[in-house]
Structures are given as structure tokens and as C-alpha cells.
Design a protein around this nucleic acid. Sequence first.
DNA 1: AACCAGGACGTGA
DNA 2: TCACGTCATGGT
Length: 232
Amino acid sequence: MQAKIIGIYDKLYRLYGPQGWWPLINLNSTNPHKTGAIRGYHPGNYSLPEERNDVYEVILGAILTQNTAWLQAKTALLNLNELNAIAPEKLLSLDDETLKLAIRCAGFLNQKAIYIKEISKFFIELNGRVPKRKELLNVKGVGNETADSILLYAYKQPQFVVDTYTKRIFSYLGLVGEDIKYMELKEFFESNLEKNIAVYNEYHALIVEHAKRYYNKKPYGVNDPLKKLLNQ
DNA sequence: AACCAGGACGTGA
DNA sequence: TCACGTCATGGT
């Protein structure tokens, strides 16, 4: 199984190349035509984010993109940027109506406005410290995937991120059961991969890119090149 | 015009 | 624990 997991990674990496997650709105993309991409992809650069407010921006994006296309989350981030609110203190100073207007394009505006303010308070309290996974899960609006996304992409911690695409692809390919739970699927990857930030970073991003091409409309998996790989 | 997007929470069984 | 309804806008 380990060989398959690594083989799939190698195949996806050869197909799509480094994805350079997480996008940051203030960077110019070096790959403007990537699926779902805006500005901010930085392929092969795993040192980002470095600035405090860039870390914060990744966290905001993780909340805003919950069950929402990244393009819409990005628009919300650009709106917040126009308000100079990609900084926790400034965001918390916004009144709720202004905040909701800025993020409404990302959907779930009422709850996401609450979640964003909650995580902003938490971020300030951290005072630069890297949060524990359990601490993040205690913040309202942060579930398993968002916690792992924040830890991996904002804080560069080795936490594998699982999402609905991951379950869809790997259960379709018969590598895991359809009813596998989040933590089980997370462990499935982490126990079979080297504990490497770049690998975790790219693997999740590559899965999303692959899913957008072959698993975003039914029937899933049509012409998926991974099927050939697994049949060899 | 249905379908779904880089999910999480609250509720009742 | 677990299945299920709810949250909401916008692109394809």
C-alpha cells in the first residue's frame, strides 16, 4: 500500500508539477493558468508564509473556503484587503455588517463572520506561538480539515490534510473504504509517507488539482490516469 | 437549471 | 457515536 501511495504522488507530481500552496493574494502568480488559481501561487517555495499577516491570511482563507470554491474565498480576501483588514486587530474592529458584506461572496456569511472573528481573537492570543491541533479544534468554526490546513499551510507543521476530494478519489480507486473517517484517512497517509512538509503540502494540493479535473462531476473518475497506474 | 464548491455545527436518536 | 438538516453565494 505504501508503494501505491507514493506512486500516486509521483504520478500526480509528474502530471501537474509543484502546486505552491497556499495562495497568497499579495504575490504575483508564476502560474496564472492553474486550475482555480488566482495570484499568489509560489511553486516550490515552502518558506511561505513568513510575515505575521500572511500567516493570518492563510487562516482566513481556510475558513472562507469551507465548502466554497476558492475563487469565491479569494474574492472575499481581496475585499477584506481593500478594507486593510488582513490583520486580526483591524478585522476585529470592523462592524459585523461591513464584515459580512465583504465576505458574502464566499457564502455562509453569517456563520463565517462569527468564525472569522473567533479565530482572529485566538490568533492574537497565540502571540506568535504555534497552536496545538486540539486548541484549534476548540475554536468555533474550525473542524478537522481546517485545523490541519492551518497547521500545514500557515504554520508548516507536518499534518496531512484530508478533504472530500481525497476520500472521493481514494475510495473510488478502491484503496480505502467509502465510509472511512477523517482521522482514519489522515492516518492512512501519514503512516505511509515520510514526515516531510513539502510532500504533505504538495500531495494535498495535487489531490485537489486532480479532483478538479476528474472528480468534480459524475460519473467520477472517467479517464483518470491513476487507474492505469494502479493496474500495472 | 440542477448541481456543487479545498466543511462545520447543532440536534435527536 | 452517528446520521441528517442547515448554512448561502456564485460558477459551470
